[in-house]
Amino acid sequence: MKVFLVLLFGLLSGSLAFADDDHERNEAKGFAVNDNVYLQECGSCHLAYPPQLLDKKSWQVIMQSLDKHFGDNAEMDKALATQISRFLEGNAASSGFSRRSHNSASGRITETSFFRHEHDELSPRHVAQNPEVKSLANCSACHRRAKVGSFRESEIRIPGFGRWDD
């Protein structure tokens, strides 16, 4: 049993060491998705996109059209949908979060002016024609720590291209 505890402690302290500096830890905390219902319901098909990437209105567009969800059917029980809406709207981008808009009439994060500005130097060979990326919706293909809510430029590795420096 003692050996087991020592091993467990070793594993835990090892994983904590990945959060290597304060800045990174703070940023991860800001975008990390901690809502289990959202993670389970939405994250089972795609990255559970941080709610801060869209404004309240855009999240409403998405949650009101789950039966036609970007080419898929993502209908869910009403109680769950209400719970998820509350989480998304409560953490949505507010004015002042950045100078650029987080609004998207279609509900697509990739169509906000914030997102477009951040990705305007990419070409189709980086994304659409890149078999390991395919779509801008596939955040974690290049943002290697997207799952823990970190989108720092230094962490970007575009498959087949490597680091990104703009």
Binding site: D72, N73, A74, E75, D77
Partner: peptide
């Protein structure tokens, strides 16, 4: 059971 019904609904419709 809930999960079974949720995915039947989504995927049969899709």
């Amino acid at each position: 059971a809930k999960k079974i019904e949720k995915w039947f609904k989504r995927n049969c419709k899709w």
